[in-house]
Structure formats: structure tokens, C-alpha cells
Simulated scan of single mutants.
Amino acid sequence: MSNDRLSDVLDATYTCLTRYGVRRTTMDDIAAAMGVSRSAVYQYVRSKDDAFRQLAGRLHTRALARAREAAGQDVPYAVRIRGVLAAKLELSLQLIGDSPHTAELMDSKARLFGEICTEFTNELRTLLADLFAEAGAADAAEAAEICIALVSGLETAPDSRHLLERAADALVPGLLR
């Protein structure tokens, strides 16, 4: 299977998601967005649901890679932690900003991709807890949970990128003690 063609299918799926949402998108819509026949799309995905699951997986995997990259930098812990949080926030802002429909891909209760969202958040929680533990924080798991809650609260706030920086700069040093 060509990764480029699968990527094209997932890009077309995202385009349809922004226009119609998950429920209203059809395989014909995805095919039309690609400029191919519906049967050509079926060579890369089993169904519309499969296309959306793979799309959600791709977006969350990319955000997790950015978070891991931030965690692995050779900079102070507070900067690394803020970078992990920024990866989650950027994914949310991308999805919320592109269309009202795209936020569906962040819904941990969604039938199609709830487990992807939950796994993503759990991976971030573990990454953050490891950073806090490595830095010598008293309760690394609780600190990670507070940070996840912070980002979740900022997802719909105006100027959330700026607020994340300020909030992390105020919060993380206290959690690292």
C-alpha cells in the first residue's frame, strides 16, 4: 500500500470533515475530494469509519511526536513541560480552528476515535509525570494531571497560546518544588 496515497485519502477525509462533519461525510465525498472513484478509496481504507479512525490516529500520533520531541530537549524542565503542553494545545487549536466539525476528533467519548483520544492523553500524562519525577517533584502524577487540566481549560480560551505560556510559567515552577 502506498503511504502517499493513504496520506491523500486521509487529507481528503480531513477536507470532508471540515465541510460536512463525520456523520454527513460519505465515501463518495472523500473520493470526490481526491478526484478518484470510490473504489479507488477502498484500496486504502475499509470504510468511512476506518478513514476517520486513521485520520484521528495520524493527527494524534503527530502531536505525540511533537510532545516527545519537546520532552527530550536539552533545556530546563519547565521549558520541556511547556513544550509537551503546547503540543496538546496546538492539536486542539488546529482542530477547533479549522471547522466546528473537526473538534469531533478530540472527543474522548466518540465511538470511532475515543480510544485514540484517551490513549493520547494517557501518553501525555505519562510523559509529563516522567518529566516531573525526573525533576524531583514530590507528586509527579498529580502534577501531570494538573497540567493536563490546565491545557484542557485553555482549549477554548481566547489567546490560549499566550495564556498557556503565562500559566505554565506561573504553575510549573511550583509543581517542580
Rank of each mutant, 00 (worst) to 15 (best):
Leu124Ala: 00
His60Val: 03
Val9Trp: 04
Glu123Ala: 14
Ser99Glu: 07
Pro76Thr: 10
Leu17Gln: 07
Asp11His: 11
Thr126Arg: 11
Leu105Met: 10
Ala144Gln: 08
Ala87Ile: 03
Leu175Ile: 02
Thr15Ile: 08
Ala67Trp: 02
Ala137Glu: 09
Leu89Gln: 02
Arg24Tyr: 12
Ser99Arg: 04
Leu128Ser: 06
Thr126Leu: 06
Gly97Pro: 02
Leu127Gly: 00
Cys147Leu: 15
Leu17Trp: 07
Thr25Arg: 10
Met27Arg: 08
Ser92Asp: 07
Ile96Leu: 14
Val172Asp: 03
Cys16Val: 09
Val151Trp: 09
Pro100Asn: 07
Arg161Lys: 13
Thr18Cys: 15
Leu112Arg: 07
Pro173Phe: 08
Glu142His: 14
Met27Ser: 12
Val22Gly: 00
Thr61Trp: 01
Ala110Val: 00
Asp49Cys: 00
Ser39Lys: 07
Gly174Val: 10
Val84Arg: 10
Thr15Phe: 00
Thr26Trp: 12
Gln73Val: 10
Arg38Val: 09
Arg24Thr: 11
Leu112Trp: 08
Arg46Ala: 14
Ala138His: 14
Thr25Gln: 12
Gly97Asp: 04
Leu89Val: 02
Gly72Asp: 13
Val79Tyr: 02
Ser47Leu: 03
Ser47Ile: 02
Leu55Ile: 01
Leu112Pro: 00
Asn3Lys: 12
Met34Ser: 09
Asp74Glu: 15
Ile146Arg: 06
Ser47Gln: 02
Gly83Asn: 09
Thr126Asp: 07
Pro158Met: 04
Ser39Ala: 13
Thr18Gln: 15
Ile96Tyr: 09
Leu95Glu: 05
Met106Arg: 13
